[in-house]
Simulated assay, not measured.
Amino acid sequence: MAGRTVIVTDSTASLPAEVAAARGIVVVPLQVVIGATVYDEGAEGATPELVAQALRDFRPVSTSRPAPAALLDVYEKAGADGAAGVVSIHLSGEMSGTYESALLAARDASIPVTVVDTRQVGVATGYAALSAADVIDSGGTAERAAEAAGRRAAGATALFYVDTLEYLRRGGRIGAAAALFGGALAVKPLLQIRDGRVANLERVRTSARALSRMEDLLVEAAGGRAVDVCVSHLANPDRAGDLAGRLGERLAANLEGRPVWCGELGAVLGAHVGPGMVAACVAPLLVDGVVPESGSGPASRPQDA
């Protein structure tokens, strides 16, 4: 690590532990509060299964950002180990106070820390961190790494289906999708991350149609570009696996041999969307530091189907 810029992200980035370790990316956990008990997100603390069961049991579930002191400890440890600086890459500041905590910690750090608000959630933030690590691995600067993270995140398309908007409403994360809430029982909402918040994309009449429409929109978003693809779920493995398989087939040329990641959503994000959720992200790879142009991505117009 001596003389190197260290990439830091948070647990909502949904990076597999082995991937983060192999790339030298430090992951800082957010917390989940179930009843009166506080857990760090992760295999030894708050797991997706724990959260899904708590939600089914109608137990109080909330989440908490890492304190600035926790992030400062990470930055200071990197410095003590010889790092020249840190690029700290986090989920949308519109959705969590994690970015704010990172800014406060960066102010007090003894080494330079560049903080990036990806304005994304989930694996789109993880892909941004991986692109930053690519820059560092190739000898690039912290500034270039931060720029790459921002561009990769901005180029990603993240869509998700939920059985109900109730969990998003409870957590105050529903954003522009709030207009859907009154009719949520009559339709199945297909949502997107837009401008750092959850927003309505389309309204469809069945869950099968929602997932089929999601698939089509993600293929459209990929266009002719090389992409990474990830499908996530909370207590919905069969539908997620089916979607991952179809995306893998339809985007085989775009994937260039890379696998479609498919797995359970992290506990923090799961607490806000509830059991049954299926999400997918298509993130074009950077070429010479930028996201290549492609055809038009998914339309943001409402559509009844």
Rank of each mutant, 00 (worst) to 15 (best):
Gly122Arg: 02
Leu247Ile: 13
Arg203Tyr: 05
Ser232Leu: 15
Leu217Ile: 01
Pro284Trp: 02
Gly140Phe: 13
Arg203Thr: 13
Arg197His: 11
Arg250Glu: 13
Ile7Tyr: 03
Ala226Pro: 09
Ala105Cys: 10
Gly175Gln: 03
Ala299Pro: 03
Leu247Gln: 08
Val187Ala: 03
Glu44Asp: 14
Val135Ser: 07
Cys262Ile: 05
Ser14His: 14
Glu143Arg: 14
Ala156His: 01
Ser101Ala: 15
Leu251Gln: 06
Val27Asn: 00
Ala149Arg: 09
Glu256Tyr: 01
Ala158Ile: 12
Thr9Phe: 05
Ala244Met: 13
Ala36Glu: 13
Arg152Gly: 00
Ser88Val: 01
Arg4Tyr: 08
Gln192Thr: 14
Thr157Cys: 14
Thr5Tyr: 11
Gly263Cys: 13
Asp108Ile: 05
Asp238Ile: 11
Asp81Ser: 13
Ala253Cys: 04
Ser131Ile: 04
Pro16Arg: 08
Arg56Val: 06
Glu202Cys: 09
Ala186Trp: 15
Gly297Asp: 04
Asp288Ile: 06
Arg194Asp: 13
Ile7Val: 15
Met1Trp: 10
Gly139Pro: 12
Thr141Ser: 15
Ala208Leu: 14
Glu49Tyr: 01
Gly171Val: 09
Asp163Gln: 03
Asp81Gln: 13
Ala176Phe: 07
Val86Ser: 02
Arg170Ala: 12
Ala142Arg: 06
Gly155His: 00
Ala145Asp: 04
Gly93Tyr: 06
Phe160Arg: 05
Glu202Arg: 15
Gly248Leu: 08
Val229Tyr: 05
Gly263Gln: 09
Gly245Lys: 06
Gly295Asn: 01
Val121Gly: 07
Ser212Leu: 12
Glu18Ser: 15
Pro48Tyr: 07
Val121Trp: 00
Val113Met: 05
His233Trp: 08
Thr206Asp: 08
Ala279Gly: 15
Ile193Cys: 02
Leu180Ile: 08
Pro284Leu: 10
Ala20Thr: 09
Leu243Gly: 02
Asp108Cys: 07
Ser101Ile: 14
Gly139Arg: 09
Leu285Pro: 00
Thr63Arg: 02
Glu49Ala: 13
Asp242Ser: 15
Leu218Ala: 12
Ala124Gly: 15
Val229Leu: 14
Gly171Pro: 06
Gly276Leu: 08
Pro302Met: 08
Gly171Arg: 10
Ile111Thr: 08
Arg144Tyr: 03
Ser88Gly: 04
Val219Ala: 12
Glu147Gly: 09
Ser207Ile: 03
Gly24Leu: 07
Glu166Thr: 10
Thr125Gly: 12
Ile193Lys: 03
Gly79Trp: 08
Glu94Ile: 07
Val86Glu: 03
Asp195Gly: 04
Asp195Phe: 07
Ala244Lys: 06
Ala142Val: 10
